[in-house]
Write a protein that binds this DNA or RNA. Structure first.
Lengths: 268, 268
DNA sequence: AAGTGGTCTAGACCACCAT
DNA sequence: TGGTGGTCTAGACCACTTC
């Protein structure tokens, strides 16, 4: 019976904190394999269920990543995604030196009759108008980080499905349809990844996520996209800017970045 | 041994789904008390640990709320908060017919030497400048929904601490200091509520949250606030707008709202 | 005083994965 | 084939809430 670290705090939380400290201190570097639940149980003299509870906390907090039903590994730093940037996820990842990817799950044209009212309303569709429905799993350096469930008015983007839909869709819209995303209204919700999406993404169920419903507009205020995105909260850090001249914000961004780096260094 | 509902899906998840359906169907209305873990265990012929796992899922998903160490109750609908609106949380809640409140945790003046580099950088402080440090728990209809940990340059807001800091701080800045929030840069992170903040807020640990680091600017691009906010993800729905003329967005907002109501009705 | 949630144990079986 | 995570059990003790 090894003595427990601090009193009055549950054991599973103490164990989680200890592992978290080892990760922050670099003793367990990124991609290092975490001890198995049974090993942890023996090492700390606790039951496996208690060790498992500790691991669960770390996984939900994004400090470790479970791959399939296999062991857990120390997570790489989170990816950054600017919600208010006109550039899509694909372009932002590439600029950051990350290899973006997409796995096409669904690509279909839906006739007007098959559309739910929310799509019709969000895209302000005329009677009879059909839409393209595209579902993709987005990856960063091969790791699944999001799913996008998007709808585009077919009359705006003829033959959209013939393009390579694993590329940046916003890039396609720009290059071939001269559509420039100019604004959006988004609704954000913190949620847990449900079993169906978890399976599609190939990641663990119940991961905390940022769920976004987005209506995107052209400069002429034509809604050209309605999307339902789910981003892994354990793997992504989000940026958002409101108002303010872009030039200034670009400058302050660096300062901001510095400040946050210091935050990290403090070890919050 | 009562037969299990559907095959191949863990029991605790089936029980959670069943309770979730009862909530969505209105059989369990808002504020209704959920059966105790032992009652559920007996009713479904499962162990208490399994029943507890089901309850945990519902709590993290925001369908039920635990009060202290007491029983769980069906949650009220989530509050809405527009991240890109210049109006603060206080004003937005009031407009929505919700009673906003704040509990002052800390109100102090910090000398320059006591400041962390991140505060100095974010507020672009001159050597020797001091700041006001204010920590508040924000409530909606008496329910704790967020904590705000904010820093204001003292030279911009002399005697700020003498005001009633349970009112809207942005309101105070407007009325008495003629400072109009004009823009912000925010960094958002999905996280789980840690034990310290959970205790300060008086809610359960490990609730999914939206954590925000914010640098707010005046129309003259003077950073007047640096804040670290933590919002309960299980109780708040967030809105964000990027670009686009306000008039148009105001109009489309209603359409958007309708679309989301339909989404809810679909029972996602 | 009784009931409740929070924690913890020492087992168990299974499906899946790597070897 | 052996180890692993995922699930589940039938208990237990404690602190706290509720009555």
């Amino acid at each position: 019976m090894p003595e427990t670290r601090t009193p009055n705090r549950p054991i599973y939380r103490q164990v989680a904190e200890q592992i978290a400290e080892e990760i922050k201190a670099g003793i367990l570097p990124a991609d290092a394999r975490i001890s198995s639940e049974r090993e942890l149980a023996e090492r700390y003299g606790i039951s496996r269920m208690t060790a498992r509870a500790a691991i669960n906390i770390l996984a939900q907090r994004g400090l470790i990543v479970r791959r399939n039903r296999s062991r857990a590994y120390v997570a790489q730093p989170k990816f950054r995604f600017d919600l208010s940037s006109p550039g899509g996820l694909h372009e932002q990842l590439r600029k950051a030196g990350v290899e973006p990817g997409a796995k096409l799950i669904t690509a279909e044209m839906l006739p007007y009759d098959a559309l739910s009212p929310k799509v019709v309303q969000a895209l302000v569709l005329d009677e009879g108008a059909s839409v393209y429905h595209i579902v993709r799993v987005r990856t960063a350096n091969g790791e699944p980080i999001a799913v996008e469930d998007s709808y585009f008015p077919a009359h705006l983007f003829p033959d959209l499905l013939d393009f390579n839909l694993t590329d940046s869709i916003y890039g396609i819209l720009r290059k071939y349809f001269a559509v420039e995303p100019a604004g959006s209204v988004q609704e954000l919700e913190i949620s847990l990844l449900d079993a169906e999406w978890a399976e599609i993404m190939g990641v663990a169920v119940d991961l905390p996520t940022l769920e976004i419903w987005r209506q995107a507009f052209t400069a002429d205020n034509i809604p050209f996209e309605f999307a339902h995105d789910i981003y892994r909260g354990d793997r992504i850090l989000f940026i958002a800017r409101t108002a303010g001249p872009e030039s200034f914000l670009a400058g302050s961004g660096q300062l901001w970045q510095q400040a946050l780096d210091n935050l990290q260094a403090d070890g919050a």
